[in-house]
Amino acid sequence: MAFKIISSQCTACSACEPECPNNAIREKDGTFIIKPEKCTECLGYFDEPQCVAVCPVDDTCVIDNSFPRYVVAA
């Protein structure tokens, strides 16, 4: 149910943080991280995941396969 940030690629630019509709992103130890339990993959808010769309480094905000995909509650 979530995206994650590959921290070795993150420039810590902070662009994603304010774009997240769920306040799931925050800074930690010089990089940014996504709280998986808060991330909804932007479903129900936007057509594309905001962190992916704004991030300057390709393939930095990616699906975290260790969680099942998020499903919008009916």
Binding site: T11, C13, S14, A15, V54
Partner: peptide, 14 residues
């Protein structure tokens, strides 16, 4: 202000 809202080909955002 480290965030940017565009990408320029002359910029490496690192």
């Amino acid at each position: 202000a480290p965030a940017c809202n565009i990408q320029c080909n002359y910029c490496n955002r690192k």
